[in-house]
């Protein structure tokens, strides 16, 4: 039974890592534990930590904490885990079946680096057009987006810090935009930077933060809000750094 509870907690943990909201994870864990025969389940989750206490029908209690350090949005994994937790609640599954499905979800198919690389570039190019840039600006933005992605990819392996990553990305994007202006391909850096900012800014983080706050998960909401604010500041810092050092007129 304890092994089954362990699975319930692990499924919840992986859901949280792949981008589920806090109250959804709390609900899923509670439901799964109930399906496994828990008399009572107390779950408390914030974005970086989980505490789960399970009371078995014969009076034993079982508590576990998990520290959730990094998160990377992966909706395919979330979909598979969500499916698994639904199935567990609907019918009794054997331990082996659960393990198999769980591993399947963890090792789900991911897009190749090349495809991610191209889509990063496409996002930058598309949003340059979106905010009113012309075709030259969009083309430059496309290449800048690609270089930014490469930069994050290689430095992210060393730093492991989201905030530093965004700072670096903003620095690269701004310097390349200024260089393009200096060469004379474009007249203003605005559109290039806006296009590249779109994939960096914590718009999703901010929306999730406000949603968490409104649904009553105040601590998670505040944590996400602070994270979003720090990311926005680090983007601005990257931009300021280049603009000051370069001494270009804006």
């Amino acid at each position: 039974m304890i092994k089954l509870f362990n699975y319930a907690i692990s499924i919840g943990e992986e859901m949280l890592i792949s981008g589920a909201e806090v109250h959804r994870v709390e609900e899923s864990i509670t439901r799964m534990c109930r399906a496994f025969g828990a008399a009572r389940t107390d779950v408390f989750i914030i974005t970086s930590s989980m505490v789960v206490t399970i009371h078995t029908p014969n009076g034993e209690t079982y508590t576990q904490t998990r520290r959730v350090i990094n998160s990377s949005t992966n909706f395919e994994k979330l979909h598979l885990l969500n499916d698994l937790s639904r199935k567990i609640c609907q019918k009794a599954m054997t331990e082996q079946e659960i393990e198999e499905k769980f591993n399947e979800a963890i090792n789900c198919k991911k897009n190749s680096f090349f495809l991610e690389f191209v889509s990063c570039a496409a996002i930058a190019g598309a949003f340059t057009l979106f905010f009113g840039g012309n075709l030259t600006e969009a083309a430059i933005s496309f290449f800048v987006g690609a270089i930014v992605k490469l930069g994050i990819h290689f430095c992210g392996k060393i730093t492991q810090s989201k905030i530093f990553d965004k700072f670096l990305a903003a620095t690269i994007a701004t310097s390349l935009a200024f260089i393009a202006v200096k060469i004379g391909w474009i007249s203003s850096v605005d559109m290039i930077i806006i296009g590249n900012i779109m994939s960096l800014i914590p718009g999703i983080g901010l929306t999730n933060a406000l949603r968490d706050l409104f649904t009553g998960d105040s601590i998670s909401g505040l944590l996400r809000l602070i994270e979003a604010a720090l990311i926005a500041l680090s983007i601005a810092a990257g931009y300021f750094l280049v603009a000051f050092l370069g001494g270009f007129a804006l």
Binding site: T73, H79, R86, N208, A236, L250
Partner: peptide, 29 residues
């Protein structure tokens, strides 16, 4: 049969106020 987050976060991407955030930054500078 998938979490709502998947659809909301991605479909609302064009509404993220990236442009106005940038101009906020530029004016601060």
């Amino acid at each position: 049969k998938s979490p709502t987050t998947t659809f909301i976060t991605t479909a609302l991407v064009p509404l993220i106020p990236g442009g106005s955030l940038y101009y906020t930054m530029a004016y601060a500078f």
